[in-house]
């Protein structure tokens, strides 16, 4: 929800980044305040996923210019794990499978690491089991997923639910959901969206990266941004997503070219 009195969580200024020496982000500007839900849309290759990886601190993505302030601190001073502990969460488009590590062991390790960092109480295995089972209900997840290896043999939908479960456990300030809707059938989409909506509150913020309007029927964004060639070329309300759904991206692109033409 938009509230002009809420505080700024993330401030991205003229962000440029390269991967494999190719510039993928070419000047992103975006301000995110607590309580807000932002959708980032755009065609493949527009730089959406790169933006999420840069924010989470993946070492293959090199920031070449610009700044990102997270709650007033320079985000790029922080290692990926420090960002996670400070409250940045990335739900992966392709969650990693880790055979040999039980999901409950992994979830507890992540939870306790973050709790310890925030000066909060860590949970022993039994306490954690109760706690995590409760959170799993939010996502209608079968508790048997606790005993299996992390994401191993999970279906696409189960992996995405496991991502949102981690989000529920780690209680981030900013959650970045990278195509969380991809590979989900309509029931799973509804369940995952419902989980996200229950986690969203006025203290945190969510960035949804998606191709489709479909997800935004369930998680209603306050802002919709369209990315093209490493820049945000249009920002609007939730109605922009509907317009994209019916008209495609080309008109936004054309509008942008005209606008740039006028400028130059």
């Amino acid at each position: 929800m938009i509230d002009k009195d809420s505080k700024t969580l993330l401030e991205i200024r003229d962000l440029h980044a390269t991967v494999n020496n190719i510039e993928v982000l070419k000047g992103i500007n975006l301000t995110i305040k607590s309580g807000e839900i932002h959708a980032i849309m755009g065609v493949n290759g527009s730089g959406k996923s790169t933006l999420t990886k840069v924010l989470a601190g993946h070492s293959a993505y090199i920031v070449t210019a610009g700044s990102v302030m997270f709650e007033g601190k320079d985000l790029f001073e922080l290692e990926p794990e420090e960002r996670a502990r400070a409250g940045i969460f990335l739900a992966f488009q392709y969650p990693i499978e880790i055979p040999g590590v039980a999901n409950n062991q992994f979830l507890r390790l992540a939870y306790n690491t973050v709790q310890a960092q925030r000066g909060k109480e860590e949970l022993d295995p039994l306490e954690f089991d109760d706690f995590v089972r409760d959170k799993m209900k939010l996502l209608e997840m079968n508790p048997e997923f606790l005993d299996r290896s992390v994401n191993e043999g999970f279906s696409g939908g189960e992996k995405k639910r496991n991502e949102i479960l981690q989000m529920a456990l780690l209680e981030p300030r900013i959650s970045i959901l990278d195509e969380t809707d991809s590979g989900l059938d309509i029931d799973a989409l509804r369940i995952v969206a419902n989980g996200v909506n229950q986690i969203a509150n006025k203290e945190n913020a969510i960035i949804l990266v998606t191709h489709y309007q479909r997800l935004l029927d369930y998680i209603v964004p306050d802002y919709v941004h369209v990315m093209e060639s490493g820049r945000i070329i249009k920002t609007g309300g939730k109605e922009l997503a509907l317009a994209l759904e019916t008209r495609g991206y080309e008109w936004v692109s054309a509008e942008n070219r005209t606008a740039e033409g006028v400028v130059s």
Binding site: A56, G57, H58, S59, E79, P80, E81, R83, A84, R85, F89, L90, F92, P95, I96, I98, P99, G100, V101, F106, L109, A110, T113, V114, Q117, S149, Q166, L170
Partner: peptide, 25 residues
């Protein structure tokens, strides 16, 4: 390693966990 670090685990913890898991499988 990045996946685990993005969940708050330090690099060394992530490496240790993955090495252990490699055998534990």
């Amino acid at each position: 390693i990045f996946y685990l670090r993005s969940r708050g685990l330090s690099e060394i913890t992530a490496r240790n966990l993955l090495t252990y898991a490699f055998g534990a499988e």
